[in-house]
Simulated scan of single mutants.
Amino acid sequence: MSIPPPPGPQQPYQAPDPYGPPSGQPYGQQPYGQPPYGPPYQTWGQGYSPYTRPSPVNGLAIASLVLGLLCCIPAAGLVLGVIALVQIRKKGQSGKGMAIAGSILSSVGLALWILALATGGLSEMWEGFKEGAKEGTDFSVVKGQCFNTVGGSLEGLTYDVDEVPCAGEHDGEVFGEFRLTGSAFPGDGGVSVAADEKCYPLQDAYAMDSWALPEDVDVYYFGPTRTSWRLGDREVTCIFGNTDETAGLTGSLRADETTLDADQVALLKALNTVDATLYEEPEDYPEDDLPGYQVWSEDLRDVLGDQIEALNAHSWPADTEKSVSALVKDMEGAQKEWAKAAVADDPDAFYTHYDKGYAYVDGPTTVTAREALGLASDPPSYDEDYDSGDSGSDGSELDV
């Protein structure tokens, strides 16, 4: 048994050798009567390090708080908050406050959504959103208005136009509009077909004097896109534009009851009504569809009879009455030829009356009557290969 050293004054503290204990002496053991090697230090418990490191924040807690603040998907925010609380408890992570706050905010948002659905408020909110969105897709252009587009093109996609006076240079002039029907977007091709079918009749009502239209003017239109269709856009706007993008238009092309006198309107209505029936000529040749041509000839006979009656019933100014009477006489002769064409036994006989029935159209008496009434008197040149159904497919469309 070793005997402890006698009591006595404590030995002064000796600083440790910076290079460790003396050679040959075990580490941690000091000479008798000396304190342990080195100053005392604190041991750290299991799972901790001598440096303070914050525990990681749970990612789901952050997501729950964000969704709770946005209220866009309240149910998801609530679910993420609950899952985050479980993970925080198991893994010792931080973010408990964010998870609780996200869960509470998401619960409130979910309650508001349920209340909106029950009261119809959500439906009103959605309608309001659609109306607001439509304001960005609808144009303010109306019938009779002239405008310029960005870049001067009437083809492709546009988001805005600038109204300008029709008297000056401009890119387009609106002459009509109509709304598409149906719930499903008909596609760009379907919009083009509808524009071809409905814009051309509107053209005849807006520019009644077709002879006054420049040859380089064609029909274009604003149509809805697939995106604007989802927001309720159904409007198709029919416009005049120049086939040469660098040329544009100058002056208004409007010629209807607002710009013409009663005598001019009466003559143009009669001529245009007959022309509309002439345009309905069957696509096949008489050799292939004689019955179809016979029915069409009957229609022309009847239409001519109605317009002859209308022209004779109108009171014409003294200086125009003779010219109009000469035109009516030619129309009566054409009516008789179409009546004979309607009962022709073979294509050859049909062609004989067909040619005579067409003879008065754009003939001398038509020109004379137009001159007497102050209308355009230069007959337009017709392209024999013209097909109005091809206009939309040639790109005469401006999507909005």
Rank of each mutant, 00 (worst) to 15 (best):
T149L: 01
T149H: 02
V150S: 15
V150L: 11
G151Q: 07
G151L: 03
G152C: 03
G152R: 03
S153I: 06
L154A: 06
E155Q: 14
E155G: 12
E155M: 10
E155K: 13
G156R: 10
G156C: 07
G156L: 08
L157N: 14
L157K: 13
L157D: 12
T158P: 05
T158K: 02
T158F: 02
T158R: 04
Y159R: 13
Y159G: 13
Y159M: 12
Y159C: 06
D160G: 09
D160V: 10
V161L: 10
V161N: 01
V161A: 10
D162H: 07
D162L: 10
E163K: 09
E163D: 07
E163V: 11
V164L: 06
V164F: 07
P165N: 09
P165C: 12
P165R: 11
C166Y: 03
C166K: 05
C166E: 10
A167Q: 08
A167I: 07
G168C: 06
G168F: 04
E169P: 05
E169D: 09
E169N: 14
E169W: 10
H170W: 03
H170E: 08
H170K: 14
D171I: 00
D171W: 00
G172M: 14
G172E: 02
E173K: 05
E173S: 05
E173C: 06
V174D: 01
V174H: 00
V174E: 07
F175K: 01
F175Q: 03
G176H: 04
G176L: 02
E177K: 08
E177Y: 06
E177A: 14
F178G: 06
F178K: 04
R179G: 06
L180Y: 09
L180I: 09
L180F: 08
T181D: 13
T181A: 15
T181Q: 13
S183T: 14
S183F: 09
S183V: 13
S183C: 02
A184D: 15
A184P: 01
A184K: 12
A184F: 12
A184V: 15
F185V: 03
P186C: 10
P186M: 09
G187Y: 15
D188C: 04
G189N: 14
G189Y: 04
G189R: 07
G189A: 11
V191W: 00
V191T: 13
S192L: 05
S192K: 04
S192D: 08
S192Y: 00
V193G: 03
V193H: 01
V193K: 05
V193N: 04
V193D: 11
A194H: 03
A194V: 03
A194T: 05
A194Y: 00
A195L: 03
A195T: 04
A195P: 02
